[in-house]
């Protein structure tokens, strides 16, 4: 755990959420939530259904604005920035219900991810300038690398929605990585995966972290969360219930009462 603590002491968090509130109609989805995501960590958000985890993710990616509070990415204030601008800054995401581009091949899906890293516009595409051709070639080779990275190289030319469910999740991750993020937000990546797929997901998450990308994970699969996370934040009714290392959180009485239950509790480390 020493190495891990050293990592947490790095000065600049990659993402800082400060006193964020959000309500929908009369429902307070998030109430004064504050936390830092340390650079290079795997940071998990857990909590019962309706605790506000996905809302928090959507606030960070810019799907809708916060009522109050602020989100800071490295040194950039995100408030008021549109979703697509945040991607260019280095924030990528996947969706709880997989949202692949169904009319496209596996490779094309990842190529769409290269959008922010390429430049050509309408005229460039029509004129097919040497620069456009070079850019396209580079995008393709990078996309193939990423398919290799998640183990989908052989499926490159298949239609994306023809892939088995678990592979679709991996493809969505590859597509998000293609945007060249510094932080990747994963919304329940293990849901619908079988045990084998979940364990290869855990390996993949480690691999992504090693490549220098910070991970923010919303997840219900506790064994996955406790295995891969450096830090865990527990949300309950839109409020922060606890935050700490997996061990600390698992030992926390309030967390056990609200979410984990007795059988999953207890310090194991």
């Amino acid at each position: 755990m020493n190495a891990l603590e050293a990592r947490q002491e790095k000065p600049l968090p990659v993402l800082r959420v400060e006193a964020v509130c959000k309500s929908f109609g009369g429902i307070q989805a998030l109430n004064d939530v504050t936390f830092d995501v340390p650079a290079g960590s795997i940071f998990s958000l857990i909590g019962p259904n309706g605790a506000g985890k996905t809302t928090l993710l959507n606030l960070v990616t810019g799907s809708f604005p916060a009522d109050s509070g602020q989100v800071v990415f490295r040194e950039t204030m995100l408030n008021g920035r549109k979703a697509h601008e945040r991607v260019a800054l280095g924030i990528a995401r996947t969706f709880q219900n997989i949202e692949l581009f169904g009319s496209m091949s596996v490779l094309e899906n990842v190529l769409v991810g290269r959008h922010v890293k390429t430049r050509c516009g309408f005229l460039g595409a029509m004129a097919r300038l040497p620069r456009t051709i070079g850019e396209e070639r580079e995008a393709r080779s990078r996309a193939m690398e990423l398919l290799d990275f998640v183990g989908l190289r052989d499926a490159a030319s298949q239609r994306s929605t023809d892939l088995p469910f678990g592979w679709q999740r991996f493809l969505e991750i590859a597509r998000a990585l293609a945007t060249g993020p510094r932080i990747l937000l994963l919304d329940e990546p293990a849901s619908g995966l079988n045990a084998v797929e979940t364990s290869s997901l855990a390996e993949l998450l480690e691999k992504i972290r090693k490549s220098g990308v910070t991970l923010l994970l919303v997840e219900h699969d506790m064994s996955l969360v406790m295995k891969v996370s450096d830090r865990v934040l527990v949300l309950n009714h839109g409020m922060k219930l606890a935050e700490g290392t997996p061990c600390e959180v698992q030992a926390n009485e309030a967390v056990i009462a609200a979410y984990l239950g007795r059988d999953k509790a207890g310090p194991r480390c």
């Binding site: 979703a83 991607v87 969706f95 692949l100 581009f101 769409v112 050509c120 396209e136």
Partner: peptide, 25 residues
């Protein structure tokens, strides 16, 4: 030519899922 380019892929992405397209930047 336009369809088989970065722009064309982005257009088709909007057709398939506007939410996912904007999450691609």
């Amino acid at each position: 030519r336009l369809i088989h380019s970065r722009i064309g892929r982005a257009l088709r992405a909007i057709h398939d899922s506007e939410r996912a397209a904007s999450s691609m930047g």
